[in-house]
Amino acid sequence: MLDDGRYGLALGHVKIHSLRRRRFLRIAGTATACGALVSCGRQNTPWRFLTAAEGRTLAAICEQIVPTDQTPGAAWAGVVNFIDRQLMGPYRRQRDAYRTGLMEIDRASVSKFGKDFASLDAPQQTALLESLTGGAQRFFATAIAHTMQGYYGDPRHGGNRDAVSWRMLGVPVIPIRGRNRYEFPRQGA
């Protein structure tokens, strides 16, 4: 229930340092190095987990959640990058939710407006997101939480580019904090 094969795989890399695995990995590394060149080229997506099309849909959804006004919105802030990166780690249990959720939203968009979600104009996108039900609605709730984390969280995780949200809120990007002062004796003195 907690662990399917995919999580086991992710769990495996934690042990990468262990001696028992090191030799195996070296061999595996050689074997996969060449394959990687091919596979990366073929995927043709700037993302780690998402396909290019999924990335486009997700960017549009994120931008609806935190839109651009006088400050840049979620898309500029790199929230898709944030989510994509977390899907390789802490969000990995939500991979299926993203795959099906994004598909359902695009499907709903096509059936209602005849276009995929990212191609709709903003009011249509808003209307569609507000009308979601069932699984798609639950996925959207997840996407809201994740978008907020990406936009208002730490830049180190791949979102909140240039600390854009912190500056919008008036939070010092890096606080100015002194410690107890200590004067070093002059060298040679």
């Binding site: 990468i16 590394g29 996969t32 596979s39 987990f49």
Partner: peptide, 13 residues
């Protein structure tokens, strides 16, 4: 570099 590559190929983070 190798470690990073292996992680990358295995879709690890």
């Amino acid at each position: 570099n190798l470690r990073r590559l292996v992680q990358h190929v295995r879709q690890g983070f």
